[in-house]
Design a binder for these strands. Structure first.
Lengths: 152, 152
DNA sequence: AAAAAGTTGCAAGCTGTTCTCAATACGCTA
DNA sequence: TAGCGTATTGAGAACAGCTTGCAACTTTTT
């Protein structure tokens, strides 16, 4: 029976993506990406939150590295960056099956509702195609005033 | 013939909006809003840019006041705040006829193309209506990779 | 005209993010 | 599998954008 080491581990998409670029696989990068993979693709974390979640589970990764890694993972299209928030950008796992985020945001109280609309998805696809862009993700932000805030 | 002072000037929307709220019309507020009215509704300025434009035209308004005024004008829905930028939020005159901004953005090089799509506008309207929100503006951001960046 | 309330400018402070740089870890090659 | 070149890390300083505290000033009210 062959020893476990005789199997060659299949390199993860992260690892092969990095390799291709002369970059290296590090425990820190693995930890950041696994954190996002662990929580799934609907949830957005700030850099600070990533930092404290890792710290709480005993993994020490410096904040500077978190910022560097988040930027890298966005560029590699593992993560998606959401700009729509107060107090720091947020990141989430980029799901290629479900690449859309439509938000209705109250500009007064910040309440946010999510919805999804096929026409919007299609509009993004068409625009990308017309200009020869490769679509990653489209996000619609509707700025509005919610019923509770409208009268004050 | 009556003296000019016998005419009562019709208070501007800004002034009456402020009055309603126990707030006051000040030269600073007027200057900031006129600046935006002067340049029209397609152009977005950062707080810093507003500051230097006013300074260049000889109007001294402190940066702190600019920030306070921009926040106020957004709340009063004279201006619209765009969160989608690097290096500071940007503001533009909120045009109620044309409240839409659709962008196709290359995540590698930052190139941005604008487009407009009726279905997207409608989707925002429908979502707002369903939840009882009052629509201000909807913006679609399509994150993608442009032809020049796709192979590297 | 005095009091009350809103606004401004300045400077200090805060927050999120990036940078600098020495120390360290990765991964290739021998 | 030891050694080497280079990518990466951590820590803290630096930075940019923005907000706040406060004293002076301006308007409005009485």
């Amino acid at each position: 029976m062959p020893s476990p080491n005789s199997y060659r581990t299949h390199p993860s998409p992260l690892e092969s993506g990095l390799r291709q670029d002369g970059k290296r696989m590090t425990p820190q990068r693995k930890k950041v990406l696994s954190l996002f993979e662990g929580i799934g693709s609907g949830i957005h974390l700030s850099a600070e939150e990533v930092h404290s979640k890792l710290t709480n589970s005993g993994d020490k990764v410096s904040l500077a590295t978190i910022y560097r890694t988040l930027r890298l993972l966005v560029k590699m299209t593992f993560l998606n960056e959401l700009d729509l928030s107060e107090g720091g950008n947020r990141f989430e796992l980029l799901s290629h099956d479900h690449p859309d985020h439509h938000h209705l945001i109250c500009i007064r109280c910040g309440r946010t509702e999510e919805f999804e609309n096929k026409d919007v998805i299609k509009a993004g696809e068409v625009a990308a195609k017309n200009l020869g862009f490769k679509l990653l993700e489209s996000s619609l932000n509707v700025r509005a005033i919610c019923p509770l805030c409208i009268n004050k």
